[in-house]
Computed example of a mutant assay.
Amino acid sequence: MFSPSDGFLYIGEMLIVAVTLALLVFILTKGLRWFFQKFDVTNEEKEVTVEQFLRSLIRYVAIVAFLVYIVQPYVDLTRILMGAGIVGIVLMATLQNFIKDAFYGFIRLYEKQFVVGDFVIVNSTHYGTIAEVRLRYITIREWSGRHTMLSHSNVQEIQNYSRNELKVIEHLTIRYDQDPDTAKQVIETVCNNMNQTYSDWLQTGEYHEPVQPFQFFGLTSLQPEYVGGFQLTIIGCVRKEHYIEAHNELRYRLAKASYEEKLRLAEPLKHAAAT
């Protein structure tokens, strides 16, 4: 058993180790910040991504080192990890998940699959901007303002819309007995208003000219799943930070213009059959 003096000595050593590790974490993270501010290694988004990832790694290493220091004098970690007991199984499962997440994190960092600020769709369900890239997880800031955390191992599919031109594509499906020229005029009016009102949303090229302003793209499909309908398409390239609101605004303006001009829109077959 421990004597009071041994207990105080152990607590003192533990505090010294904790303070030393905290100081090392502070120095290393500040050193990272200084390095990326001092040297222009790459663009700002990639620098922020690498810095966040390495800071997370440093903190995890410090925490694990401290925990190992605390329990090592009293617990044979090798025996527990190699054993078949409940504690060993739980620890091995936790360690396995941690290593898997960290491994995928390193792979994505190395392959530059995304960086902070990229607009992505993850697993076809989470739409938003990459806010954080940590050792074990990423944080997505969705259009509603909600922050969603996903571990790297749970990220099965990534659609990165920030690598190429980010295109807003919307469709208006009208009936066969609706004059397509009238529908085209309505769409062109909506596009012109969008380009004038939200010119700062448009993606620009080298000479600050819009890459592709909102415009009528054409009749892109005959719609067999609609009753007597065909599809007109609108397209435009926008900046990634305005992608969601550009989609919503374009939909709203199309709906309002269709109502005001009394365009006859096609109905889905199921809805038509029900009525």
Rank of each mutant, 00 (worst) to 15 (best):
R239S: 08
F114D: 00
F230L: 00
N160K: 13
F214Y: 04
T148V: 15
R136K: 10
A273E: 06
M14C: 13
M194V: 14
N154M: 10
V87L: 09
V41T: 15
F2A: 03
H247C: 05
I235H: 03
Q196W: 03
F114K: 02
P73Q: 04
Q212W: 03
Y69S: 07
E241G: 11
N154R: 15
A22Q: 09
Q203A: 15
N123T: 10
R264H: 08
F2Y: 01
L109Q: 03
E245Y: 08
A183S: 06
I27M: 13
F35M: 15
T29P: 10
D76L: 07
F216D: 03
Y60H: 06
L28M: 15
L166W: 01
T129M: 06
H171S: 11
H208N: 11
A18G: 02
V87T: 08
Y243M: 10
H147Y: 02
Q203M: 15
N192T: 12
E51D: 05
A18M: 15
A255H: 13
G85L: 00
E44R: 11
K38V: 12
T94R: 06
V25G: 08
V90D: 04
C237I: 00
G228Q: 01
V25F: 09
E209F: 14
P224I: 07
A266Y: 00
F114C: 06
Q215R: 06
F119N: 03
I234C: 02
A266Q: 00
L232E: 00
R163H: 09
I11F: 02
E245F: 14
K30C: 11
N97S: 15
L166C: 04
